[in-house]
């Protein structure tokens, strides 16, 4: 069972944050999305999704990790909350169950 329904975009970002944390910040996520899905989202798009997910309580963030390449500016580092991790898990289980049913159904 799902606790809440999120969009496909939100799900991709949630998964990307989980796979990159603790170093998950907007630009790194953008690159990860590009590598994994081929989608060229703008920073603005990613930023909006992160903002929504944080408001929903699926993500938390903290500042840190300034580097010279960034002109000494700090990053906002995102990580999954317990709720977020739970949702990712639920999504995965739901998908596996449905996929199983679908493939047996089609093999008949």
């Amino acid at each position: 069972m799902l606790d809440e329904v999120i969009s496909n975009q939100e799900e991709i970002i949630l998964l990307a944050v989980g796979s990159l944390q603790p170093d998950a910040y907007a630009y790194a996520l953008k690159k990860e999305v590009k590598v994994q899905s081929g989608l060229g989202w703008s920073l603005g798009t990613i930023h909006t999704i992160l903002y929504r997910l944080e408001n929903k309580g699926l993500l938390k963030s903290e500042m840190g990790g300034a580097t010279g390449k960034r002109g000494g500016r700090s990053k906002r580092l995102y990580s999954l909350t317990t709720k977020g991790l739970g949702l990712v898990d639920q999504l995965q289980q739901m998908r596996q169950a449905m996929w199983h049913k679908l493939s047996t159904n089609l093999q008949k």
Partner: peptide, 8 residues
């Protein structure tokens, strides 16, 4: 953070 991301 945004200006930082953009710079990077």
């Amino acid at each position: 953070e945004i200006i930082g991301d953009m710079q990077e």
